[in-house]
Amino acid sequence: MPAWRWLRFVRGTSLRRIAPWLLLLLALVAVRLSKGAVLADAYAFLTRPFWPGTAQAEWLRSARRVEDGVRLAQLERDNQRLRSLLDLQKENPNRVTAPVISRNGAGWWQQLLLGQGAISGIRAGQAVLGPGGLVGLVASVTPTTASVTLLTDPRSRVGVWVGRTQHHGLLTGIGTARPLLRFLEKDPQARPGDVVVTSPASTLVPPNLPVGVIQSIDANADPAPEAVVQLIAPISALDWVQVQVR
């Protein structure tokens, strides 16, 4: 068949027939590039009647008081040290309370979807706290939703330190319910039961937020000791969380 016949074939009815499919494909690509903006917003809109009730709000507040006690002790100790240094990062207590509208604590992607988004001031990178401590960081936002990467997700890396010994490490998700704390020193002097809080040196998260408790330590791990950390916040039972907005 001569080449000009193909041209006529494409220009004719076939083009009109495939045009809607091309438009659909473009729309799907747009959804992909926008990180599911339309989809997540539609899901939030549709599931709004089924969002968790406000009963847990009081529970969250009382848990916040316990968390504040732990933080206060840590902050007082840290304050002595910081007085002699430059004020690197000022703490801002502004928090937005958001319902958890989708929870995926296991699987390939361990994340939460929150029912508050950019309209409420939430931005990517902000810390998300459950009752007891940090649960993850905001990965992406749409106008009415925010996607949170949990600390247990292998993509999560958060700078922490053991408050008692003041040795730093990197809290690393490994796909299980308990993340791994990889120390940066050969002799971290940590022991099971030590409380792990966010590092004051971290530029990603606010300092001294409670994270978890060391459950076991592998002192012979290569290249540096590792510790299994039990998170304080119960990720599998979260209905409401707070996002620390800057």
Binding site: R157, G175, L184, K186, A224
Partner: peptide, 28 residues
């Protein structure tokens, strides 16, 4: 850190690592 043999650039790599895939990855 180099003297102690810890490479923070390796530790900070985000995403599933070989050992994670062989453990939790296979389970998932």
């Amino acid at each position: 850190l180099e003297r102690h043999g810890v490479n923070p650039a390796l530790l900070a790599l985000p995403g599933w690592r070989w050992d994670d895939l062989a453990g939790a990855g296979v389970q998932v």
